[in-house]
Nucleic acid binder design. Structure first.
Length: 688
DNA sequence: GGCAATCTCCTTTTT
DNA sequence: GGAGATTGCC
C-alpha cells in the first residue's frame, strides 16, 4: 500500500534543535554507566517531558531506551508506571530482561509490550469502560475466513473484478490504520475494482456486523476501541493516563495514524520518550508514516528532538555500503553513518545460478565458520519474504544446522494446532462459529454444507451441553463428536482440555495429515500442551499467542535449543543485530520487488528494507543472489522501469565480488558466458 | 445435486 | 503450503 511519499522530499535533519555541543552537564547518575556515550546519557536523563530521539541504525536506540527506563525508575517513577511500547515480543522480552538484570528488584513491574498487548491489557483491566466484556480476539486467519464467507455469499462472488477476500481484508485494515475512507483506499490501490465498490461496502458492513454479533475483536479493533474511548470520554482518558507516567516508544518511524490516535490524547498527561529512524521506516503497508517523525515538533508542543549519530554496531565497510544504498535514492535521506569501531572486512557479494545453489553454499559456509570455532547463534540469515526462506530451510535441515525461523509459520497459524484448538474454542465459547465450522469439518463426511447447516441449529443452543445433545440427536453426525466435546468440557485446566482434544482427534487428524508431516505435527502437540500450562483459560492462551506470536521453529519437543542460526524476515529483524549476516536473494526482481515498480514510494520502502538488512551486520556482511541469464534477458524485453535493481551500479571498491555460477557445474568457463556475466552490472568474476 | 478429493498455480512485509 | 478450480464419487 502506498504511504504517500513523493520523491525529492527532504527526509530529515532540520528538526534538530539541540546539538551535542551545548548539552547540559551530565547528571551524576550516569557516572557509573560507562557503556553509554554522552549523547545517549543526555537523552536518557533529559528533564524534558516529550522527547524524540532520532538515531541511525546501530546507534544505540535500544540501549538508550533501556537507559531511560533505568533512569526513570531509579529517580522519578516506580517501575510499574513506566511502559515501553515495542514492536515484537522478542524486543519486549529483551528490554525488560536487560533492565531487570541491571536494577534487580527495583525493576519489578516494568512492562514492555506491543501496542496491541498494551491496549488489550487496558481492556481486560476494565472491560466495561470499553464496552468489550467477554470479547475474544481473532487473528488474520479468522478475519480472512469471515471475509471469504461473506464474499462467497455476495451476488457478485463470481466476478473476477470483485477483489478477493484477502485484498478486501487488507484494504479494510489499511483504511482503518490510516484513518482514511474505504473509497479512497480503493481509488488508490484497487482502481479496477471501483465498479464493484457498492458490493465491497456491503461486504465490509456485513463483516463488522458479524464481528459484533460474535463478540470478536480484530487487531485494529483492539487499538481503535481504546482510542475512541479516550478521545470521547475525559474520565476514561484520565484513567488510562493514570496507568502509567511514562510511555517509551521504540521504532517510532513505524507507528501509524491509528496508533497516533491513541497516543495523542495522552500528551501532557503522560511523558513521551520516542525513538526512531526515518531511514528504517518499512511498515508503510500497514499505514506507518515516517512523517510522524518529521511532524513530531508540530504534533507535540513543548517537545525536544535529540540525535544519536555514532554507529557502534558495524564496521565502516558495512556502513559504506549501506550509506551508498541510500545515496542512490532520489530522496535525500541525509544519512551518513560513521563507524565508531573503524575499519573491518569488506562486505561480500556472491552470485549463483539459482536459489538452491545459494542455499547450499550458505549451509557450507556456515559449517566452515562453525568449524573455525564460531557459534551458530552468531549468524543471522535475512530474507525479504517467508517464501524465499524455504530453500534455506531445506539446506539447513539437510546440513543438520540448528536454526530458528522468525517470520515463518506461527504457532497458532499451523493447521494442526488450529484444528485442535477449534475443539477447545467451541467448548469455551459455543457462540464461536468460526471454531465450529473448523471443528466439524475435521470429521470425514462433513464439509462446508453439512457444517453450516448444523451450525444454524447450534446457534439456538444456550450452552455447550445443549450443543452436544443436539449433535447426538443428529443421525448423520458421528457420535464420537459429541462424546469428545463432553469429555473436553469436563476438563478443569487448559492443559487437560488440550490433551483430551488431541486424544479425541488423533485418529481423524492422522487421517487428514497422513503423508503431510504427520510425525512432525504430532510432536508439536506435546509442546503446545506444555505452553497451555501458563494460562488460566484456553481463551487467555489463544489471546496471548495471537497478540505476541511465537514461531513454529521455536518449538522444540526435547529441550530448548540454545545455539542456533537465526533465519529471519527483514521486517521481523528490526532492532536485531548479528556478528555475521547473510542477506539472501538480493537478486534483480527482488530488490525492489517487481510488483512495487509502479509506485515510487513503495520502491523507496523497498530500498529501506534492504538498508535495514545491511545494517544488521556487526562484523561480516554477506550478500547472496541468483542471476539466471535466460531470466535476465527475458526481463530485458520489458520496459525500462523493470530494470531498476538497487545493486545494479554497485561500485567495485565497496564490495568483494564472487561469481559461483559456472564453477561447480562446468569446471571451465565458456567464453560467451563469461562475457555475458561481465556485461551484467557488478558481476565481474573475481576468482581466487 | 451435493459434497469431498485432487490438481494446479502462485507466493510481501505484521500485530 | 495454501487457495481456487476442477474432477470424481455417492
Amino acid at each position: 500500500m502506498s504511504s504517500g511519499i513523493s520523491p525529492k522530499k527532504e527526509y530529515s535533519g532540520k528538526a534538530v534543535d539541540q546539538s551535542i555541543d551545548n548539552l547540559k552537564p551530565l547528571e551524576d547518575y550516569f557516572e557509573k554507566k560507562p557503556n553509554l556515550n554522552n549523547e545517549q546519557k543526555h537523552a536518557a536523563s533529559s528533564p524534558e517531558k516529550n522527547i524524540l530521539v532520532l538515531a541511525g541504525a546501530g546507534c544505540g536506540k535500544t540501549k538508550t531506551i533501556i537507559a531511560r527506563a533505568e533512569y526513570l525508575i531509579e529517580n522519578l517513577s516506580p517501575a510499574n508506571k513506566v511502559h515501553i511500547l515495542t514492536f515484537t515480543r522478542k524486543a519486549s522480552a529483551e528490554i525488560v530482561q536487560r533492565v531487570k538484570s541491571s536494577l534487580g528488584e527495583k525493576a519489578e513491574g516494568l512492562k514492555a509490550t506491543t501496542f496491541h498487548t498494551w491496549c488489550m491489557s487496558l481492556i481486560r483491566k476494565s472491560p466495561d469502560l470499553f464496552g468489550c466484556k467477554d470479547f475474544s480476539v481473532i487473528d488474520r486467519d479468522d478475519q480472512l475466513s469471515i471475509f471469504k464467507f461473506i464474499r462467497a455469499a455476495s451476488k457478485s462472488a463470481k466476478e473476477p473484478k470483485l477483489p478477493r477476500a484477502g485484498d478486501l481484508l487488507d484494504a479494510y485494515s489499511f483504511t482503518r490504520n490510516i484513518g482514511g475512507t474505504l473509497k479512497s483506499t480503493f481509488e488508490e490501490n484497487y482502481p479496477s475494482s471501483l465498479g464493484f465498490f457498492e458490493q465491497v461496502k456491503e461486504i465490509v458492513i456485513a463483516y463488522e456486523k458479524r464481528k459484533e454479533n460474535s463478540k470478536y475483536l480484530d487487531y485494529d479493533d483492539i487499538l481503535e476501541v481504546v482510542a475512541n474511548q479516550i478521545i470521547n470520554h475525559s474520565d476514561i482518558r484520565d484513567w488510562v493516563a493514570s496507568q502509567q507516567s511514562d510511555l517509551l516508544i521504540d521504532e517510532f518511524q513505524d507507528t501509524n495514524p491509528l496508533q497516533w490516535k491513541l497516543i495523542n490524547p495522552l500528551i501532557n498527561k503522560i511523558n513521551l520518550f520516542c525513538v526512531g529512524d526515518d531511514a528504517q521506516s518499512i511498515y508503510g503497508f500497514r499505514g506507518a508514516d515516517f512523517e510522524n517523525i518529521h511532524k513530531f515538533k508540530d504534533n507535540v508542543k513543548n517537545s525536544t528532538i535529540l540525535k544519536l549519530n555514532k554507529n557502534y554496531r558495524s564496521t565502516q565497510e558495512i556502513l559504506d555500503l549501506s550509506n551508498w544504498l541510500l545515496d542512490q535514492s532520489q530522496l535525500s535521506y541525509k544519512k551518513k553513518l560513521i563507524a565508531d569501531r573503524g575499519s573491518g572486512m569488506k562486505p561480500q557479494i556472491h552470485t549463483f545460478l539459482n536459489e538452491w545453489d545459494q542455499a547450499g553454499w550458505i549451509a557450507d559456509d556456515l559449517k566452515r565458520v562453525y568449524a573455525e570455532g564460531n557459534k551458530w547463534r552468531e549468524n543471522m540469515i535475512l530474507t525479504r519474504t517467508g517464501y524465499s526462506a524455504r530453500s534455506i530451510e531445506r539446506a539447513l535441515i539437510e546440513a543438520k544446522i540448528p536454526y530458528f525461523f522468525i517470520g515463518g509459520r506461527k504457532l497458532l497459524e499451523s493447521a494442526h494446532v488450529r484444528d485442535v484448538l477449534s475443539c477447545l474454542k467451541v467448548v469455551a465459547n459455543p457462540k464461536d462459529d468460526l471454531g465450529w465450522i473448523r471443528f466439524l469439518k475435521l470429521w470425514p463426511g462433513i464439509g462446508d454444507v453439512k457444517a453450516s447447516n448444523l451450525l444454524k441449529e447450534l446457534e439456538t443452543c444456550k450452552d455447550i451441553k445443549e450443543c452436544t445433545e443436539r449433535i447426538k440427536y443428529d443421525r448423520t453426525i458421528p457420535k464420537q463428536i459429541a462424546y469428545l466435546l463432553e469429555d473436553v468440557s469436563k476438563c478443569e485446566t487448559p492443559r487437560t482440555a488440550f490433551r483430551e482434544s488431541v486424544i479425541g482427534l488423533r485418529e481423524v487428524l492422522e487421517q487428514n495429515y497422513k503423508g503431510n508431516n504427520w510425525e512432525k505435527r504430532v510432536k508439536d502437540f506435546s509442546v503446545v500442551e506444555k505452553l497451555t500450562e501458563k494460562s488460566n483459560s484456553i481463551l487467555e492462551f489463544i489471546e496471548a499467542y495471537i497478540l505476541e506470536p511465537i514461531y513454529e521453529s521455536e518449538l522444540n519437543p526435547i529441550e530448548p535449543v540454545k545455539d542456533a542460526v537465526t533465519v529471519i524476515t527483514i521486517h521481523s529483524a528490526k532492532g536485531a543485530e548479528s556478528k555475521r549476516c547473510y542477506v539472501i536473494n538480493v537478486s534483480p526482481g527482488m530488490y525492489p520487488l517487481t510488483r512495487t515498480l509502479n509506485d515510487d514510494s513503495e520502491v523507496e520502502e523497498e530500498r529501506r528494507v534492504l538498508y535495514v538488512a545491511l545494517t544488521r551486520a556487526k562484523d561480516e556482511l554477506i550478500i547472496t543472489r541468483s542471476i539466471n541469464e535466460s531470466a535476465a534477458s527475458a526481463q530485458k524485453g520489458k520496459d525500462d522501469k523493470n530494470d531498476i535493481y538497487f545493486l545494479a551500479n554497485l561500485e567495485d571498491d565497496l564490495i568483494e565480488n564472487e561469481d559461483h555460477r559456472y564453477l561447480e557445474s562446468e569446471n571451465q568457463f565458456s567464453e560467451s558466458k563469461l562475457t555475458k556475466s561481465r556485461n551484467k552490472p557488478s558481476t565481474s568474476v573475481d576468482l581466487e
